[in-house]
Design a protein around this nucleic acid. Sequence first.
RNA 1: GGCCCCAUAGUCUAGUGGUUAGGACUCCGCUCUUUCAAGGCGGCAGCACGGGUUCGAAUCCCGUUGGGGCUACCA
Length: 496
Amino acid sequence: MSEVRVRFAPAPTGFMHIGNLHTALFNWLFARNQGGKFVLRIEDTDEVRFTPEAVNVIYEGLRWLGLDWDEGPDIGGPYGPYIQSERLELYQSKVQELLAAGKAYECFCTPQELEERRQMMRARGLPPRYDGRCANLTEQERERLRAEGRTSCIRFRVKQTGKTVIKDIIQGEVVYDNSLIADSIIQKTSGFPTYHLACVIDDAAMKITHVIRAVEHLPNTQLHLQLQEALGIEPPQYAHLPLVLGPDRTKLSKRHGAVSVVEYAKMGYLPEAMFNFLALLGWAPGDEQEILPPQEIIKRFSLQACSASPSVFDMQKAEWMNGEYIKAMAPEELARRVLPFLVEAGLFEADPSPERMAWLVRVCELMRERVKRLTVFTTWARYFFTDEYEYEQRARQKWLNREDTPQKLEMLAERLQKLQRWDAESIEEAVRGLAAELGVGAGQVIHPCRAAVTGTTIGPSLFHLLELLEQSDVVSRLRRTAALAAGGQLRPAQEG
RNA sequence: GGCCCCAUAGUCUAGUGGUUAGGACUCCGCUCUUUCAAGGCGGCAGCACGGGUUCGAAUCCCGUUGGGGCUACCA
């Protein structure tokens, strides 16, 4: 049994969404499960769309998720180059073979003409297929067209009789009627191959054993199988993955608002959570476990267990899973992940001292069980890092707008200022002491205090939170808030 | 329009002829707590529809409906 070789073959469009990454992940999982090779190939045969930075977008996306490739443009390999625009001679030589064998022919129709004819066929209720106009031109006719200054592309002469059967690991047996396809362009006027040709040639040249790609390519497989036959290529095994759909249940795409992979990183998603989440889209481990380490996923993965039905990417569940990973993460590690977000927001120094880092670890330890995304540290929990925070509506409504609040805050400030020891225990004692003295429940002091010092009504244990802030800072926040409240500046904003 | 794929709650899924149809997210209660967007407990909600096959169908077959994909000198 030969070694399993799969490939991820994206077009460098400068955009990589969850669906693309999902396909890459499943290829990678299969390769790792089988102890095979995962090849990265760049399909830049669309010169019009190509952008050089786009290849980096692909690298970044794969690396972010933790998918390493065994062969690729940057690291080479035995079957390179791995960028299609650098393999033009190969494709062209194969086209020559097909031409010589009469399996392909020159087509002189212009894109405009083709479009017009398609329109006409559509108008007449006919399927808009190529009509074969140039299929049987004589050499004289071709000469005449060239003399007119016409340029040509190359079409593959498709077999229009019989049926093509695709044996797909995921989709099962799919049968297409050959009479339904028309001669397809395999080489553009520019000399570039089309996707179909390049893909078929490269998969063979790179010894790809399993083509795992999105189901949108399933109909193309009919052509690919014919191309392989004409080229004398043994077809690989096919596995067409169901599409990952957007919330509107249509194919993810840039224009309908699909989010690029890097955006998820910016939104505070952990790659390991996304890895786990994406693996569970169209594949299930079989038992009821959902949080699985990568090794476990690799071990259990199989194409046979992949579903053929499409799935909707559910952000809420992704967020939940992200939270699970954050909760399970060591505080030190969490601190390392959070740091770039804080630096970016100007809330922390880029090169913190060990003491500062240790402090950040404590913040993470306190926060991690209620954090779903890393960005909360720069939003809900920014009070740890700066005095500049907003007083939220709820905090104003419930506590800051009350008559007795300024006085309470002042009293608390005074007590806290006098504390000899600044730790959670002492703080708690002072807070509860004040409540007892005022003859109110502890909550009547705790809540206004939280509202004043953090601007919110929610968060971790107040005493442990205060402990992590500077004593003088807490005191000044209390006084500042007391003054603002007394001045009537913390009234709730008007609704609507 | 034609061809193909898909169909278990709002979402992700388990299930391969006999189950009280299981789990997860969301949502809703209750509970703990100084708060919840944290924890614990509980609940709502599903086999798209119609025909077959069978002693028996979520499961097999056909049709309908719905959704999606392809139908490019894009991939």
